[in-house]
Amino acid sequence: MLDALDPDSAQGQVYRALVSSPRSRVAELAARTGLAGDAVRASLAELSAEGAVLVVDPQAEVWDAQSPAEVTEALLQREAARRVGVRRTGIELERLFRTARQDSGSYPALEVVEGGERILATLQRLQSGARRSVRGIDRPPYYGSTGYYADQEVIQRERMAAGIAYHFLYYESACSDPVVGPNMARMIEAGEQARTLAEPPMKLHIGDEDLAVVTLETEDRSDFVALVVRPSALLTTLCQVFDTLWKLAVPVSVADTGAEIDRRDRGILVLMASGATDEAIARRLDLSRRTVVRRVAALLEQLGATNRFQAGVQAARRGWL
């Protein structure tokens, strides 16, 4: 359903055409959007499956849009439900961890590792053993020293040079952390794919689909303990949790670290977030359309966004709107 709100996608163009021109035929939608008839039909099928449009006359191929307010509310409810599911999984995992710590022999796929140094060594083994990818969630409190992040950069650069893909999800304030922020920027520049999320539920590292490490603070918060998870239903669940969080998160680029925008770009972002077209933005701000197009492209790159919707979310999180 997110594509229905993205003006840059085929589905978004078809949906907007139906919003402004109710009860349109496929041929009419193709003429308005510039898409081929088959592309329009494919977009309508996807939008219909998501409940964003409905067919009025199947024989004549006449379609209409559902209310944008209802479509937006359904999207927000769906994302809220996914967040609830992720938090529930985190709670169950915490219970399982506590049980495993009391009796680690009760579940062969689990191993408890205590102490920061042993945990860091375990994480390095996870990366060294990965054959395809390393996925991770890095959130406060940060237990690594400056020396740890220097060592991490070395092994990560080596593994990425060997073709290992790194996908990391960060707490949204990581950019302002004096140690984590610069490290994150350097790794992104070196090829890491990074995203941010307001409330990631756990510290997590996953090597391929073979090994996962969940890190938690001890009860008295004086040290850390880790739950090492080997192939099992639990490991599969952790991989699914990461993939769900990754879809909810906002992409990060090197330009995100400490970047600011001027008054003109803030005005463009505000109008973009309200759904204004490039032409409308140009008229409102007394700019040429070419300038608006160029600044919109630059803002998308600066925010690490692939479409206007993501740009609005990222800009709002950074307090630019």
Rank of each mutant, 00 (worst) to 15 (best):
A36T: 15
V154W: 02
S24W: 00
E46H: 14
A174S: 15
A52E: 01
Q302D: 03
R125K: 11
W63M: 15
A249L: 10
C175T: 12
L238W: 02
S222I: 09
V225T: 07
A65V: 15
R125G: 01
S128E: 05
T237V: 13
A255W: 02
G312V: 12
N307F: 04
A81M: 08
E189H: 06
T277M: 10
M187E: 02
G129N: 07
S128L: 06
E94M: 10
A49D: 03
V55K: 04
F168Y: 09
F97I: 08
D177H: 11
G136C: 09
E192I: 11
S145C: 14
Q11W: 03
A17V: 06
T244M: 05
P141H: 05
E301H: 09
E192M: 11
Q124I: 09
I119W: 04
L35S: 06
E46F: 08
I155L: 07
R95T: 05
E73W: 13
W320V: 13
Q302H: 07
A36D: 14
M160T: 14
I164K: 00
L300W: 02
G51F: 07
P178H: 15
A4F: 00
M160H: 14
E301W: 00
A259G: 13
A27P: 01
D243P: 09
D8K: 13
S20A: 14
S145W: 06
V56N: 01
